[in-house]
Design a protein around this nucleic acid. Structure first.
Lengths: 160, 160
DNA sequence: GAAAATAGTTGCATTTGTCCACTATCCGTC
DNA sequence: GACGGATAGTGGACAAATGCAACTATTTTC
């Protein structure tokens, strides 16, 4: 008997139309779930909620003196949003600002002791969370995905 | 001459640490850019901004009588957020609700003429946007990505 | 030296989602 | 059939994040 034409009541039966073959759809949808999951794992850590804090923390930890405008490009936000994000992190004493000697318009960011310790913890959490969340993806596929998406990310970050 | 240790000033020089191999990082970052780009392409279309409206529109168009709670799972949101999203779309006369005859707690959603026309337009826009945005990805890689991410998406949608 | 570009900040408005409680209804079981 | 427990949808309150545009201070360009 062919499937009946009555209203679908199970998720599995649903036809998602052209979205079935639309990469942006999967990126956007999976983003919601993976971000929520990550927030749970970071609960209470000064670095939870929203994109950018983690990246900023690791960036400042690994690239002493990095500037807000560079971070803005890497976290795909504008300078104003980035500035506020840095404000927060400075309030939490994860990093501090200094005016650049070369260019007094610019700032240089440096990690604090507390920030460095948090960075250490976060590295583990983030890596583990991603691998666990995508645990239905084989190692090989995982590597493949990353290689492809890295290119896209680099392109975006470079041009913004 | 080895790279100097002075503050990095170009995006290309930056080391993004463990995020370099973290899939969730790429998903989250690319999401920001692809969503912004899509919003531009949908400018003024009753369906712009935020995830979910497009999916809901296509879902209702292709699955007459579908219920809000099913949509909630597919757009990865809770029922409350989904309800409000449907409110908006009903105000815009893209769809309408009816109480299910089977279960008077539940609703069935149906597309309107206007909604159907918009769905037609949106199918083209969305498909094109995704393919253009990821135009640096080969067809083969594209197919691969989709096959893998589809599994992840299905798993998420099924369990939420 | 003037004009144009760049770094960062701030105000403003908007959007968006989350949490939680509440009602109505349905389902299974005793 | 009646009761307890799940399920569907709604509404309120709230917190945050983000983007845009305007503005200052510097630096760079020609």
């Amino acid at each position: 008997m062919p499937p009946t034409k009555v209203p679908p009541t199970s998720v599995k039966d649903i036809d998602i139309d052209v979205l079935e073959d639309t990469l942006s759809f999967y990126i956007r949808s999976i983003n919601l779930a993976v971000s929520r999951d990550l927030d749970e794992k970071l609960e209470g850590l000064d670095v939870a909620r929203g994109t950018g804090k983690i990246t900023t923390l690791l960036l400042v930890d690994g690239n002493p003196g990095i500037r807000p405008s560079i971070i803005a490009k890497l976290i795909i936000k504008d300078r104003s949003a980035t500035g506020r994000l840095i404000d927060q992190m400075e309030e939490h004493e994860l990093l501090f600002r200094e005016t650049s000697a070369d260019d007094s318009r610019a700032q240089e960011l440096y990690i604090t002791e507390k920030g460095h310790e948090l960075a250490e913890r976060v590295r583990g959490i983030v890596t583990r969370q991603s691998r666990e969340f995508f645990s239905d993806i084989s190692d090989e596929e995982h590597k493949l995905l990353i290689d492809i998406l890295r290119r896209t990310y680099r392109r975006i970050a470079a041009q913004s």
